[in-house]
């Protein structure tokens, strides 16, 4: 039943648009052409990253790698995947991402909702309170001292707690609620005598699927890519997230490839390997997170909200 309710409206539109006018036909062709051209523009460099990751470095620098890989080898992947730290890194990153994102959502969504409500007391003060932190910060030194005083140095929580809320994202949520939720729905709930919490959990949350999905995506990707806090807060290599491990492997290879007066052929091999690693580590580190988008975008389907209302 519910399924039908979602699908029906768009089907109707399709039926209606059958009798498409000429100008519409032109419009559709134009946007299709633009989007596909843009797609090619995006695809080629991505394709290049893939073929560069399996090509010979000299061939890349001499401009021979263009349409297909030259001197195919998997040394970059080999160097990465034979390193045991990679798997620890994957595990840690997944844990930080899951834990961090869960906390982010729990904190950000209610806060964004409250901010969007005109009946929030001291609304202006609260908004200003948050906005200030987007521009003014005490810098790294006091933050480090704070984390040290909280005994969070070398603790997984240092990867999560300082980033519990992104003010920027909170305002995205606020913007979504300001224009995305029909007032009528809420008023109906209020008339029913539902309290703030019931309104939020039984009406607002079901309507928020798209924004929650986006927030999951934004926060998860930020956690996934975060290596800087690992760099300054973590010393224990067993706690390193994936990106930090990849960085270390790259630096390790680069150092071996820059030795002064070292064995010539090794230096060369190592610096070539370092280059392959740069490309292959993009593939290794992004493939798992790329699957997130198709999943997230399911919640963008038109009618999801309408369906939920019925």
């Amino acid at each position: 039943m519910e399924e039908n309710a979602i699908v029906n409206p768009s089907r109707k539109i399709k039926k209606l648009s059958k009798a498409m006018s000429k100008s519409d036909r032109i419009y559709y062709i134009v946007i299709d052409v633009i989007l596909v051209l843009l797609l090619l523009l995006v695809l080629y460099p991505l394709y290049f990253v893939v073929i560069a990751s399996v090509s010979d470095t000299d061939a890349i620098f001499n401009g021979e790698v263009f349409l297909y890989p030259v001197g195919i080898n998997f040394k970059g992947y080999d160097a990465l995947l034979k390193n045991d730290m990679i798997w620890t890194g994957y595990r840690n990153t997944i844990l930080y991402t899951l834990g961090g994102t869960l906390l982010n959502i729990a904190v950000t969504i209610p806060a964004g909702w409250a901010l969007s409500r005109l009946e929030l007391p001291w609304r202006k003060f609260i908004a200003t309170y948050f906005i200030i932190t987007m521009f003014f910060g005490g810098g790294l030194i006091p933050l480090y001292l704070l984390v040290s005083d909280l005994n969070l140095l070398d603790s997984p929580f240092a990867m999560i707690l300082p980033y519990a809320v992104s003010v920027w994202n909170m305002f995205m949520v606020k913007a979504f609620y300001t224009s995305g939720i029909p007032d009528g729905v809420l008023e109906a709930a209020e008339v029913d005598g539902a309290g703030s919490f019931r309104t939020f959990f039984s009406i607002v949350i079901p309507l928020s699927k798209p924004i929650i999905a986006v927030m999951v995506l934004f926060y998860a990707v930020a956690h996934w890519n975060n290596y800087f806090s690992a760099l300054i807060f973590l010393s224990d290599e067993n706690l390193y997230p994936l990106q930090m491990v990849l960085r270390e492997i790259l630096i390790m290879t680069e150092t071996a490839g820059s030795g002064m007066g070292g064995d010539a052929s090794t230096i060369l091999e190592q610096s070539k390997l370092a280059n392959s690693i740069k490309y292959s580590s993009i593939i290794v580190s992004t493939l798992p997170i790329l699957v997130l988008y198709p999943f997230v975008s399911k919640f963008f389907e038109k009618g999801v909200m309408i369906g939920a209302l019925k």
Binding site: L140, I141, Y144, L145, S148, F228, L231, I232, S235, R247, E248, I251, T255
Partner: peptide, 21 residues
């Protein structure tokens, strides 16, 4: 107490700031 080169570059001033440790 070991710390890798790349981390040290970022952390040197922070470690020195943390007088108690």
């Amino acid at each position: 107490e070991n710390i890798t080169e790349s981390a040290y570059a970022e952390r040197k001033t922070l470690i020195l700031s943390d007088r108690e440790n």
